[in-house]
């Protein structure tokens, strides 16, 4: 359970907002180790989303380096970066982002469709396993709008895990859920973290969740405060 999965070195990132430049990250450094279950906490606007986006390779830093397994993500060409996301990173979004016309099984299957080397039978097995892992085996043929919020987020979790990523990034995964469901989702993530050894990095502003995770990274004004 050692080795650096993600390493951020002196990362700066600011956004243009009209004429002014709004700094989001100011020289942030951070390291995530394999198998860690880390919560990212901070007030809204503190730079949580920006940090997750940089780690996930869907945004680029203004300066500094974001290394995923030692590779500087920003230097990769777009297709390479897409492949990296597909094979090493799973995303869980606040608003689930499921494809409404695909059923549970098909939604989970999406990341596997990209890698053509995976044979259909193996794909089916992996999707089934992922769907079972999140406890939705009975709902495999349901469409997203036939599911509750918690169930939808489980689908998203299954989709994030199906390609056996190194790292799962979750941006406010429980923000749209009630507290009971929130705890179930966190339980599920913890269980998967323990069982599969996947590194989890998720942002939240729910202080009640802090006690349940091994590591909490707090950021404020674009830097890590603890």
């Amino acid at each position: 359970m050692s080795g650096s999965v993600v390493k951020l070195e002196e990362v700066h990132k600011s956004y243009r907002l009209g004429q002014t430049s709004v700094p989001a990250l100011r020289g942030l450094s951070l390291e995530l180790r394999r198998g860690e279950f880390t919560a990212l906490v901070g007030a809204s606007g503190s730079g949580k989303s920006t940090l997750l986006n940089l780690v996930g390779g869907i945004d680029e830093p203004d300066s500094g380096r974001v290394l995923v397994e030692g590779t500087d993500v920003a230097t990769l060409p777009d297709d390479e970066r897409s492949r990296l996301r597909n094979q090493k990173i799973g995303f869980i979004f606040q608003s689930f982002n499921l494809v409404p016309v695909l059923d549970v099984f098909e939604n989970v299957e999406l990341p596997l469709l990209i890698n053509r080397r995976i044979p259909a039978s193996e794909r089916r097995d992996r999707v089934r396993a992922a769907v079972e892992d999140v406890g939705l085996a009975d709902f495999a043929r349901h469409l997203p709008d036939q599911l509750s919020g918690g169930q939808r987020q489980r689908v998203a979790i299954a989709r994030a895990l199906v390609a056996d990523p190194l790292l799962v990034l979750a941006d406010e995964p429980t923000a749209n859920l009630d507290s009971v469901t929130t705890h179930r989702i966190v339980d599920l993530m913890l269980e998967l973290n323990a069982r599969r050894g996947v590194t989890f990095f998720f942002s939240t502003h729910d202080e009640k969740l802090m006690s349940r995770v091994a590591r909490v990274v707090r950021i404020s004004d674009g830097t890590v405060v603890s």
Binding site: G56, I58, D78, D79, S82, R83, L84, R85, N86, Q87, F91, F93, N97, V99, L110, P111, I114, R159, A163
Partner: peptide, 13 residues
């Protein structure tokens, strides 16, 4: 946003 999601999952342009 869905395009963004697909891209995040690793779909190329």
């Amino acid at each position: 946003r869905e395009i963004g999601m697909f891209r995040a999952l690793g779909f190329t342009r």
